[in-house]
């Protein structure tokens, strides 16, 4: 399933961490676990709220896309209602930095890079080596066959949505420490994630990692060499070319359906 609310879940993660200290008066460092819990809960909310009724229904994929867009709009407006439209500063974060060859590198950026790498490795290990991870891959590749193996497909959907909420919350929190909190902060990462998935091929986890790295470097290079305004159009052009040239994704292998 394609979850179009991922960007807003990311925004929510940033605000949840902010709320933990600013609204609830918890110690600042509790912002991280608080955001993680909120992310999981919103994932479950999506499952129990609407996704569970769409499983095994015709046009599941399309229904889910539309429903998650709707959910994202609701969530965004809830954020707008509670915290307002003005950018806020994320209190969680580490100050300072160091110089490497004349370039100032903030500790916060090092932390983000480290957490991203560790997060990717953990997710890769989880889906490839654990029993639940195997069941998730199996369900995404053939739902009916997974059912015939005794996989409780509904339970799997609920867990995947919670995991997606969790990861989005962590990413949102990290992102908000180097930018600011705003109700639309999730749009940009969402579009980039979409570009990466379209180029890698939907559902191709390893391909997405390569694509993310290559496109990230490419984007930064274009911004540096030609100017910031050329980066997004170039990326979108790549998607169009990619989809014409390799509709299943550059790293995607087309699955042939046999009768």
């Amino acid at each position: 399933m394609l979850n179009m609310a991922q960007g807003t879940l990311l925004t929510m993660g940033g605000y949840a961490s902010y709320a933990a200290s600013a609204n609830l008066g918890l110690p600042i460092f509790l912002g991280l676990p608080f955001a993680m819990i909120v992310g999981c809960l919103i994932g479950y909310l999506m499952y129990f709220g609407f996704v569970q009724f769409m499983i095994n229904q015709p046009a599941f994929d399309t229904s889910v896309i539309i429903a998650t867009i709707g959910f994202a709009i609701i969530l965004e407006n809830v954020i707008l209602k509670i915290w307002g439209a003005y950018p806020l500063r994320q209190p969680l974060g580490i100050a300072g930095g160091f110089f490497l060859g004349g370039v100032h590198i903030p500790y916060q950026n090092v932390l983000i890079a480290a957490v991203s790498v560790i997060g990717m490795l953990l997710v890769a290990w989880f889906v490839s080596r654990t029993k639940l991870g195997r069941a998730i891959r199996a369900t995404s590749q053939n739902q009916e066959a997974a059912q015939l193996m005794g996989v409780p497909v509904r339970f799997i959907f609920a867990q995947v949505l919670a995991l997606a909420g969790f990861l989005a919350a962590v990413s949102g929190l990290l992102l908000s420490t180097i930018t600011t909190l705003s109700p639309t902060m999730g749009y940009d990462p969402m579009i980039k994630a979409f570009i990466i998935c379209a180029i890698a091929g939907l559902g191709n986890i390893a391909g997405a990692l390569y694509a993310a790295f290559i496109l990230g470097v490419l984007e930064a290079s274009i911004q540096y060499l030609f100017g910031v305004r050329f980066a997004l159009p170039t990326m979108l052009l790549l998607v169009i070319v990619g989809l014409i040239w390799r509709p299943a994704g550059v790293f995607g292998r087309r699955t042939v359906t046999r009768l």
Partner: peptide, 25 residues
């Protein structure tokens, strides 16, 4: 145990992982 028509394998999983899915329970 139902071996369905057209196999319905998990195409992007290894032979070993396909087999292990059979022992999911």
């Amino acid at each position: 145990a139902h071996v369905p028509q057209g196999d319905l394998l998990f195409p992007e999983m290894s032979v070993r992982d396909n087999l292990l899915m059979g022992a999911y329970l």
